[in-house]
Nucleic acid binder design. Structure first.
Lengths: 345, 345
DNA sequence: TTGAAAGCGCTAACAT
DNA sequence: ATGTTAGCGCTTTCAA
């Protein structure tokens, strides 16, 4: 059995209450007592039990973090932001990866409850029937502070941190239009998804704002995987239905699209233009001159954690925090053949 | 205050011992009792406290996982492997990211001890004085099963899962030599690092095996960052000291090197050849015909977790498990100008 | 099959 | 400033 507070008390010749005080940095301890206790702790290599402490305090200093896809660089960046701020406030994060499975999400929530976590930062899975009253209940029943990240839960009023999805599509779509594009393909993901909706609105409004109509055929539903946009882009190529520009609505959708273009040797922007939403590793590594509307994932993690901390501390916080992604114009948006010398790949 | 086992017992009209038995799936409970208890649990939405349970059992079903760099795709893949097997054995993982900081590593270990974790999977930070007796003690003092991942701790005999680093460099170096290369630059990382050492040996032995001598100038020490290999490659280019081939010894070192080559428009393999060790996202996405010796990170995570589970269950396990990375020859290894049509970028 | 009761290691209220 | 003591919510003997 491990060393307990009792052993320390005995060794130091004080009561266990005094040891507890030293442990919790109470000021009401004499220097002599403190020294003796600290000495004993060191000697015995004593480490307090989180369980005993948690039980008697009936709370932890753990926060739950649930992400849908840890291998997505966006989320691993978010996580670094979360731990950065978590460390600062002495909150440990218990991570769960759901792989977009609602089942895994449920299990994660269950475990977090068992651990009586102080709060929860979550990007909920995307899925059909996730907007039921029942789904929202799941979270409300937790009865702990919650901060949503990047994905909203419809009809709920949880605190959340989001990017301005409307602007994120409005800006690049406008840019493309102003470069002469009319035929702009957008892989929409599931268009019923709330995030998709805002982005779609941005796309459509950009056309209206320029007194133009978009071609509904260019809005292509898909799931959110790289696989999906890869196959759809391939199909467009094989059917000779290439537009003059693509918009990648997420990093995964962008990658799939780029992969297909690259595979067929279709160069950007000589033959087709491309702009994407969300940072892309390939851009970071190769400076491929891809025009991107970039999200600062780490900042999102930081912000979410600060908000959660405030809520835990009982502060009132705003319901929605909107971060503005910035557009970096690098060349890939140009109209085909407008500059045959600029070749991204 | 939350619902406790007592509330359930009262509601169900049984003793708390019976409730506990139901919770723990003990067979010695009558069907009637079980039904009543389960009913009460559902009604009250009762969730047992991990703290109370942990305290009375004096152990958890948590394993600690410490990685040095969660944004490195290699480690996020490892993590998915770990959770996959962890789920299977009902082990929850408490993750920590050290950012290669020994200080953060220490803090993580401390917290894991507070939580009385059942075992630990760790990739220790790289660092100068990490081979001291004192460092090893740190881990031995934990007194729990430990599995090392990808990085050894010298002079220790912890169980670990590694890739065959020797072969990982021997094979591609030989390949390059057989393609006519003599002037092969290798960024070695810290050559005192045990992992680097094995890889270096592979490089050197490949030359001996072909009755050739390598040029010591081509072994370039650096730290393990992308930044580092980027700058060094840049320097070689600017100094007109380009070799005929580069070997990327890690994914980060590869990326830095590729970035510099791309930036200067130096094409592979027309002007210089390249082979790397470890998978590269750019290859996955763009099929860039990069010849790589690829590690299966997910498999490594799985294997490590299985080993840890065995150790927790008291089984004897082998000390070192060596996974063999596979070499995929895709074209980037060819001797410059041997095929001017093959242009990777 | 069930229940009573001790105890896991700590905190916090109270007393001194 | 320090000690005593009563829990915190559960598991686990032991007895019935």
């Amino acid at each position: 059995m491990a060393i307990t507070i009792n052993d320390i008390a005995k060794k130091a010749g004080v009561s266990l209450a005094t040891v507890s005080r030293v442990l919790n940095k109470s000021p009401h301890v004499s220097d002599t007592a403190r020294r003796k206790v600290e000495q004993a702790i060191r000697e015995f290599n004593y480490i307090p039990s989180a369980y005993a402490r948690g039980l008697s305090r009936n709370q932890s200093n753990i926060i739950g973090v649930i992400v849908p896809e840890i291998t997505n660089p966006f989320f691993s960046e978010v996580i670094t932001g979360i731990t950065e701020i978590g460390d600062k406030h002495n909150l440990n994060a218990l991570f769960f990866n759901t792989d977009e499975s609602i089942d895994k999400e449920r299990r994660a929530l269950r475990i977090l409850q068992e651990y009586r976590v102080r709060g929860l930062i979550i990007t909920p899975v995307t899925g059909e029937n996730r907007y039921d009253r029942e789904y929202i209940q799941l979270f409300e029943n937790l009865n702990i502070p919650i901060v949503l990240v990047d994905r909203d839960i419809r009809n709920s009023d949880f605190t959340g941190v989001y990017f301005d999805d409307y602007a994120a599509l409005f800006k690049p779509t406008s840019l493309l239009i102003e470069n002469g594009h009319k035929d702009i393909v957008l892989f929409t993901g599931n268009p019923d998804h709330i995030v998709s909706k805002r982005r779609l609105e941005g796309y459509c409004d950009a056309f209206s704002a320029h007194q133009m109509a978009y071609n509904p055929k260019n809005l292509i539903p898909c799931d959110f995987s790289m696989e999906s946009s890869y196959n759809l882009t391939r199909k467009l190529i094989l059917d000779h239905n290439l537009p003059t520009a693509f918009i990648g609505m997420t990093n995964m959708l962008s990658l799939g699209c780029l992969k297909a273009l690259y595979e067929f040797g279709i160069s950007i922007p000589d033959e087709v233009a491309f702009v994407g939403y969300d940072r892309l590793d390939v851009q970071d590594v190769f400076n491929m001159h891809l025009t991107l509307v970039e999200k600062d994932a780490k900042e999102m993690g930081r912000k979410a954690t600060e908000l959660l901390y405030d809520k835990i501390m009982g502060k009132k916080t705003s319901t929605r925090t909107i971060l503005t992604p910035q557009m970096f114009i690098r060349g890939s948006e140009r109209f085909p053949s407008s500059d045959p010398n600029l070749r991204i790949f």
